[in-house]
Amino acid sequence: MKPIVKYILRWADDALIMSHRLTEYCSHAPFLEEDLAISNVALDYLGQAESLLNYAAQCDASGKSGDDLAYRRQEHEYYNCQLVEQPNTDFAHIMVRQFLYDCYNEETYTALKHSSDQTLAALAAKSLKEINYHLKRSTEWMIRIGHGTEESHTRMQSAVDTLWKYTGELFEVDDLDREMEAEKIGIHLPEAQKRWERAVRTIFEKANLQIPQSGYMVTGGRRGKHSENMGYILAQMQYLPRVYPDAVW
């Protein structure tokens, strides 16, 4: 696989799996307005994933379509971060996961907008409008339920304690990142990390939340190693196209 294809898949798979997780929540939100809002975000990510997967398929030029890439890969061929695989444990987990990911998207897509690859740059610019809104929304929820009641605060802190260990791999730099950055296609992750940390700390302070002391971080997503959640996600996501390979809308 060409390096650029794998690089695009890392971005695409984040959006695809995030979209799937949020879609699972459709009709389960605490009230109607929030249900529509979360489903909207899920659809934004599905749109981003579709554009990126189609572009990956085009660069791959092996005859696979964007749909093939979405539905016909094995688990180890997905390169999303493990943060987006984490389950919809409760509303606090959903919002903390969302905020950490929105913040990451905000910084990384802002950088990707300057990619020498014009398609990636254009997709980044388009996605950023959506990402700006996602971040505004999840930031407001962080502060709202971070304070809120004793129970809401406890749940939020517990979600932070669970999810924080999945933020390390977001900024891991490997040979592929270095190669893409050298070609000015990819972004400089350490710079994005600095901005991300600053933004996250600011909001955590406003939301009265603590970053866990333990420095333990999970790794592997970008190399195709996933948490046990991923198998269940793919089983559900791929069931139909695998059972009915010729199914069309």
């Binding site: 009230f31 109607l32 307005e33 529509l36």
Partner: peptide, 20 residues
């Protein structure tokens, strides 16, 4: 109409419910 706890949430919800 819609439900929301404050102004910020009301305008967000309005966007998500009525201008999709």
């Amino acid at each position: 109409s819609l439900h929301a706890y404050d102004k910020a949430m009301a305008i967000d919800n309005a966007r998500d419910v009525y201008t999709r």
